[in-house]
Computed example of a mutant assay.
Amino acid sequence: MDPHHVTLRKMTSAQFRAATRHREIESVRELAKFMSEDLAREKVRAGAELYLPDGPDTEGHQLLVAESAAGETVGDLWIGPDPRQATATGRSAWLYDIYVFESYRRRGYGSAILAAAERLVTEQGTTRLGLNVVGDNVAAIALYRSCGYTVSSMHLDKTLRS
């Protein structure tokens, strides 16, 4: 078996809480580049209420951990319905979050987790997997490009000084 092959399984409650804390911290950090930290926190809270109203039991959403061939948990991910589904062609899923634990980075696990996610949604009848990435996340952009993802839209902005 490929040493970077991963198996996906549903998160435990403790894993969900840890993943949520990490996702919130990272999301606020990224959004605070473009707005106040208070507004960033509010947007993150509102997003969680909108997309995961029932937490890990929200219908249509899969909150998963990735385990290596050796049984180590190497990362986690959140897959759900494409929020742009009305404009997408085919049946589309959305990768809301993917996280490779720090000690497993740069070892092929990001690609393995993406491949496992793609297999999972394909088995569920999905023909497209979309995601969003912050423009300065060079490592993530390189990973997605190396796995065949292309830019489908781009939003640009500039902070203006008065």
Results as ranks from 00 to 15, higher is better:
Ser146Lys: 12
Ala116Asn: 01
Thr58Phe: 02
Tyr99Leu: 11
Met154Ala: 06
Gly60Thr: 00
Phe101Ser: 05
Glu26Met: 12
His22Cys: 08
Thr73Ala: 07
Met35Val: 14
Leu50Asp: 09
Asp57Arg: 09
His4Ile: 14
Ala14Tyr: 13
Gly130Glu: 06
Arg9Asp: 13
Glu49Tyr: 05
Glu59Gln: 13
Ala40Gly: 05
Asp136Cys: 09
Glu102Gly: 15
Leu120Gly: 09
Ala32His: 08
Ser92Trp: 02
Glu49Asn: 05
Ile98Ala: 03
Leu77Lys: 00
Gly148Ile: 02
Glu26Trp: 04
Glu30Asp: 10
Phe101Val: 14
Lys43Asp: 04
Ser36Asp: 12
Thr7Ser: 10
Arg145Gln: 15
Gln124Gly: 13
Arg17Gln: 15
Ala70Thr: 15
Ala112Tyr: 00
Ala140Ile: 04
Arg119Thr: 15
Gly75Glu: 00
Arg17Leu: 10
Ala66Met: 10
Leu8His: 05
Ala88Gln: 14
Asp136Ile: 13
Arg21Ile: 08
Arg45Gln: 13
Arg119Gly: 08
Asp2Thr: 12
Ala140Arg: 02
Arg161Ala: 07
Leu52Val: 08
Met154Phe: 13
Glu72Phe: 07
Trp78Gln: 00
Thr89Asn: 11
Ile98Lys: 01
Ser103Phe: 11
Gly71Cys: 09
Ala117Trp: 00
Gly80Trp: 02
Pro83Leu: 01
